[in-house]
């Protein structure tokens, strides 16, 4: 029925604002072939959701996008990942600089054992983004506002970040990631440790952040993928099975594996 892979259509139409382009990406953990031949184009100012059963490689692939896998000794990556046309695995690219540009929010909220202010100011300080205290104050306030947590913490910026509730901690972590002025935000199951109310707040925040960033979110919740994303990629056993508009994936999937997963027959 189709001569070309099914994703071709979507990435051709959106080629104008492709932010991340991955071609033939392979990831090995020691002898384990964790990611097999993944091709994907992630668009700017869009929320892209990675879904799939546990161990399917979606988090692994996410961590390739800001070279977090470099910190794991046994991980080996092949293929080509380009952000704005620049190969991020090129020798000329400093992974440390890359990670400032591609922010990351983790599964469990992980504020540093510092004050709320210092948590947010951490990135700007190590990258020298502020020339003086006033500028730093401004960055912190702007980031906390973007993280939709400013009103809750503005009176206690010197209180430890670890003293906040789980949902607040996760929004603090988002604000912390935003503070380094990234262009892309990667979120690895950002709501899996949160209750439904905090999840709702984070999802609202994700929708707002879409105006400024390209967002990639890994999630186990298909409802969440359907609610927050415009594009969805379905991973299965290390393969990217299907990638396309969220509405299409959830209403009319082309691959039976995707359909089985979405309808709850597997996974």
């Amino acid at each position: 029925m189709y001569d070309a892979p099914h994703m071709t259509e979507s990435h051709v139409t959106a080629a104008a604002d492709v932010k991340i382009a991955a071609r033939n990406v392979q990831v090995y953990y020691g002898d384990n072939h964790a990611i097999k031949d993944v091709n994907v184009d992630i668009q700017d100012k869009t929320v892209t959701a990675f879904i799939g059963p546990s161990g399917c490689g979606k988090s692994t692939f996410l961590r390739c996008l800001n070279r977090m896998n470099d910190t794991i000794d046994v991980a080996r990556i092949e293929g080509d990942i380009r952000i704005d046309g620049q190969d991020i695995y090129d020798k000329a690219v400093d992974p440390v600089q890359l990670r400032a540009k591609v922010g990351m929010v983790f599964q469990k909220p992980n504020p540093f054992p510092k004050s709320i202010y210092d948590n947010v100011a951490y990135g700007p300080r190590i990258h020298g983004l502020a020339r003086n205290k006033a500028e730093l104050d401004e960055i912190v306030e702007r980031s906390l506002r973007r993280g939709a947590i400013w009103d809750e913490v503005k009176d206690r910026l010197n209180a430890p970040g670890t003293g906040l509730s789980g949902g607040q901690q996760q929004r603090l972590c988002i604000a912390r990631a935003v503070a380094t002025e990234p262009e892309i935000l990667l979120m690895d199951e950002p709501c899996s440790a949160l209750d439904p109310i905090a999840t709702g707040q984070i999802e609202e925040l994700i929708d707002e952040l879409r105006r400024n960033y390209a967002l990639v979110i890994v999630t186990h919740s298909m409802q969440q993928a359907a609610r927050v994303s415009q594009k969805t990629a379905y991973f299965h056993l290390g393969n990217l099975v299907e990638y396309g508009d969220t509405t299409k994936i959830f209403t009319n999937p082309e691959d039976t594996r995707t359909e089985n997963y979405i309808t709850g027959r597997i996974g």
Binding site: M68, K101, F106, F112, P113, Y122, G123, A177, T180
Partner: peptide, 21 residues
């Protein structure tokens, strides 16, 4: 490890991470 990941994810080097986190 989550502390270190958080710091690396913000573009900190190893020694910055050790010293500050």
């Amino acid at each position: 490890q989550a502390m270190r990941d958080g710091s690396y994810g913000l573009g900190a080097t190893q020694s910055e991470t050790i010293k500050q986190v």
